[in-house]
């Protein structure tokens, strides 16, 4: 019955080796796999994406769902998605009221996901859905996050590959998550961990680091990559500054979230040392070189300035401590429920 409904309609692209069992019921209980892809102005790609995903997911023979989040497209993607969703019950579509950015789209998709395992990917067909079963196999080895690695990347060298390489180096060294290609969108996550992280601003670039903060075991796996055939790439280089600012934040959060005072204390220490040095220099000049105090105006102004700053840093750190203590963040996560 149900299978007829699937095959009689046009979102099929029937694979011949499909197992003969009933396909899983949509939305009944918890699916095993959720595939989440943000969509923005991809009118030519959405249907192709579904056509490519469908046979792969169907062949898994496990309950699954696909969640496409439309981030306020204006090129007819929304109509296309409505049409697709009407005939494909495994496809859930979230339509945003306006364009809120990739992080927001992914956050909405992750929040709506119900699968034990969540696979995130791009909607531009550059990722290959046939890699999904391989990601799942890797997950079965006990990892919490499997990140794709576009070993053979099909993009413009100077505009995409080189900046991406540099960004990758930077992100890896600052966040301590060693991956060859953090920028690859094709990734598999344990749903329970993924749904715990909060994506806002532009944090979607640092999902592996955020899952690491939740205690995830992370690995990577080579995946296929195709050149973009339809639509336009939405990347540009102008966001470098914001990426650097986000990295600074992440560094602070990863190392000092438990006690921000320790972060601010570094600065307090150096400014206070400066003040002490200035004071020593002043005393030396007065005592040994017999200069009058009035000659040392600048030196004493410096001392005042540095001391004030140093104290400010200490107080900022204390405020940070208060904020963290008053928040509800947990400081550890259990791998399995407690054994009794």
């Amino acid at each position: 019955m149900i299978s007829n409904r699937y095959f009689s309609q046009s979102c099929e692209m029937k694979p011949t080796n499909l197992p003969k069992q009933n396909p899983p019921l949509p939305a009944a209980g918890q699916p095993y796999l959720s595939v989440v892809a943000p969509v923005y102005n991809e009118v030519e790609n959405v249907e192709r994406l579904w056509d490519a995903l469908y046979p792969v997911l169907q062949a898994l023979n496990k309950p699954y769902e696909v969640i496409l989040v439309d981030d306020g497209s204006r090129d007819g993607t929304r109509e296309k998605l409505r049409e697709l969703a009407a005939r494909c019950p495994m496809l859930r579509v979230i339509l945003f009221r306006a364009n809120f950015g990739q992080s927001a789209a992914m956050a909405a998709g992750f929040e709506a996901s119900r699968g034990d395992i969540v696979v995130a990917m791009d909607s531009d067909l550059q990722n290959d859905p046939t890699d999904i079963p391989l990601l799942l196999a890797k997950m079965a080895e006990g990892y919490d996050v499997v990140s794709g690695w576009r070993k053979d990347r099909k993009d413009k060298w100077l505009l995409r590959k080189v900046p991406s390489k540099i960004a990758n180096r930077l992100i890896c060294s600052i966040t301590d998550v060693r991956l060859h290609d953090t920028g690859c969108s094709l990734k598999a996550f344990r749903g329970e961990i993924l749904r715990r992280i909060s994506l806002y601003g532009e944090l979607h670039r640092f999902i592996p680091a955020l899952t690491r903060m939740e205690g995830a075991r992370i690995t990577e796996m080579a995946v296929r990559h195709h050149a973009r055939r339809f639509g336009q790439s939405k990347y540009n280089l102008s966001r470098t500054f914001r990426v650097i600012m986000d990295l600074t934040t992440l560094r602070l959060l990863m190392r000092h979230l438990r006690n921000p005072l320790s972060f601010y204390f570094q600065f307090a220490f150096w400014t206070m040392s400066g003040a002490v040095l200035c004071l020593a220099a002043g005393c030396y000049k007065v005592i040994h070189q017999h200069l009058p105090w009035s000659d040392l105006n600048i030196l004493f102004t410096l001392i005042v300035l540095l001391t004030a700053t140093s104290l400010q840093f200490v107080f900022l750190g204390l405020i940070g401590r208060i904020i963290v203590e008053s928040g509800s963040r947990r400081t550890f996560y259990l791998k399995t429920p407690p054994v009794s």
Partner: peptide
């Protein structure tokens, strides 16, 4: 970050299925 649980930066118009 410590209040990130309650952050929702988007506004959903409609959820299909």
């Amino acid at each position: 970050f410590t209040h990130a649980d309650s952050i929702k930066e988007y506004n959903i118009e409609e959820i299909l299925n």
